[in-house]
Design a protein around this nucleic acid. Sequence first.
DNA 1: ATGACCTGACCATCAGGA
Length: 265
Amino acid sequence: MDAVVPLVSKLKIISWNVNSLRAREPLVQKLIQKEKPDILCIQELKIDDQKYVLDFFNPYHYTTISQNQKSYNGVSISYQKELLIKDLTISELNTLQARNNVLLLEKEGIAIINNYFPNGNPIDTEKFSYKLEWMDLLYNQLKQLKKNYEVIVTGDFNVIPADDDAHDIKKYRKDALAQPETRKEFYKLLNLDLLDVFENEPKKNSYTFFDYKTYKFGKEEGIRIDFFLVSPFLKSKVMKIKVLKEYRDMERPSDHCPILMDLNI
DNA sequence: ATGACCTGACCATCAGGA
């Protein structure tokens, strides 16, 4: 008789801009205990102490790769210890600031790219040109990875791709997140044949960011700037996607919500 | 119509976020 071997295995991935890992310790712990993701991508660690970051995730059976920077930025990917991985993180996208990790799931042939895109405001400064240049570097990185791997691109994109990805796009007329040049760079990424898994969800349920300043005045008034972009093959394996908005209503929250994707691979 | 908050660095106030 043939051995009973599961044909598919479930892979749960969560991405979250925590706006400081130290400040968000209790909520990140809650998320891990409740959702038990196989892969956890974090942005805006805001801490230069790599040992602290690795030790934080270690008790939950995770191994972690991280790019760190004092006070600002910082990205990490934590993965269940039994997953066979290779850290492909390259320096070009992290030359000035810690914003990009690349983890290869060797057995599955999947590359996971975790990103904290530059904000880019104000638009009449070099911050905006840096954002566009960074996005072009990411385009080149993904183009290379796409040749050999199925890819999952996630993180805080700091891009409002279309007007209906904001509750009130008028407020973003002069914002770097919604400029035509920014959107063009985003669509360049999609044109690598990547699919936005939340694309066809009701927009109001898909907002991922809610401003600290305005949240209490309008709890629906958000923007959709955190994403999972996946290869077409992986899109066909998506079982569930969700914005975990409840984490925006907990004590001392991040201004971003975690986003979740379950795959059967 | 306008403004509203949070974090880290560091001690009073500012840079940065989006």
